[in-house]
Design a protein around this nucleic acid. Sequence first.
DNA 1: GGCTACCAAGCTAGCGCTTGGGTGTGGGAG
DNA 2: CTCCCACACCCAAGCGCTAGCTTGGTAGCC
Lengths: 196, 196
Amino acid sequence: MAESRSRPSERRADLVRIAAELFAERGYRATTVRHIGDAAGVLSGSLYHHFDSKETILDELLSSYLNELVETYREIAGGKPVTALRGLVTEAFRSLGEHRAAITVLQNERNYLRTIPRFAYLTKAEEEVRRIWITVLRDGIETGSFRADLDPEITYRFLRDSVWVAVRWFRQDGRLAPEQLADQYLRLILQGITNR
Amino acid sequence: MAESRSRPSERRADLVRIAAELFAERGYRATTVRHIGDAAGVLSGSLYHHFDSKETILDELLSSYLNELVETYREIAGGKPVTALRGLVTEAFRSLGEHRAAITVLQNERNYLRTIPRFAYLTKAEEEVRRIWITVLRDGIETGSFRADLDPEITYRFLRDSVWVAVRWFRQDGRLAPEQLADQYLRLILQGITNR
DNA sequence: GGCTACCAAGCTAGCGCTTGGGTGTGGGAG
DNA sequence: CTCCCACACCCAAGCGCTAGCTTGGTAGCC
């Protein structure tokens, strides 16, 4: 029938969202199936009507996020370096709002998840994202938009980290919208903090 | 006798270092006392001759690091803003080498540890560090060293995150020494990536 | 002969997950 | 319109396993 895949059911999606919040707050491994059950108003065993393991819940959360992210990045990376960079940073902050839980889990459990064969696709997605950013940076350096003495590798790590880690304090309902925050960050990244 | 505190014993310190590496690699909660015992060439139960709990091992690791950090920061923060900032960033990278394990754990388990009363001092230390950085930034803005349109709060988070998260990929024996890496980062932070 | 460092064995609590069964509801046959 | 039953959803109970930790005893050095 392949029914359970084609029509994922509302309830199933609800449970993923509920679990995601707990994973983000307490960590994936520290969150028990009983916690998830409690939060969903259900006994822990009942979760196994929807998922065949706790890992499957996490998988569904992460894979759906990463698929969307990589696709969006590919579209953005086309134009001029500075424009592309602005797009990437802005998109990163925008996704912080929508996918806070997924990103938090991805960061906090990264080392652990890399050891699990099932989550090998995380490394692939990470590599793809890296490729996209580095291409933009190299383009910018070659065309003279960015400084010639930049090390693309270090610069990429610097940008990636400083933007993504913001998930730790970023709140959707904070005083700054994602776009405003992206603007602030872009000014820091592009111009630096020195007065001239 | 209060002996076990005043003369901490070599072995005890060794065990903390061994456990720290495991905590950093696998995560604190995913590391079992049996893992620590194996790595130390000892049965898990024997650890309890030195520590009264697994938590105590972590406590010793984190508190000793934070005490040193805050003290060092206080000394650095005195001079001119740009010099002080250079000092803070350089010191941060230097401590990445010496205290990689402690910093990694501190980041990955931050949310979890904040919920444990015993580790309330983490929040206090964090606040103290924040105070020091923000003071330097405000000074720099007032004296005209840094741009006037900087938001100290956002700038602080930006700097802190981008520097500290480097612990994820920084290796003591990598191709760049901590000081060189700090220089690269400082150029990015101070000047930005834009060519002029 | 006391003290440090350890072993051997095992306790209890809580983990992810299974099993067998119950209940309400939507939709097709009569 | 009514009957009925297949199905989605959930409960109650508990299994096997591993976690952190305890207890009683021992080897070797100052």
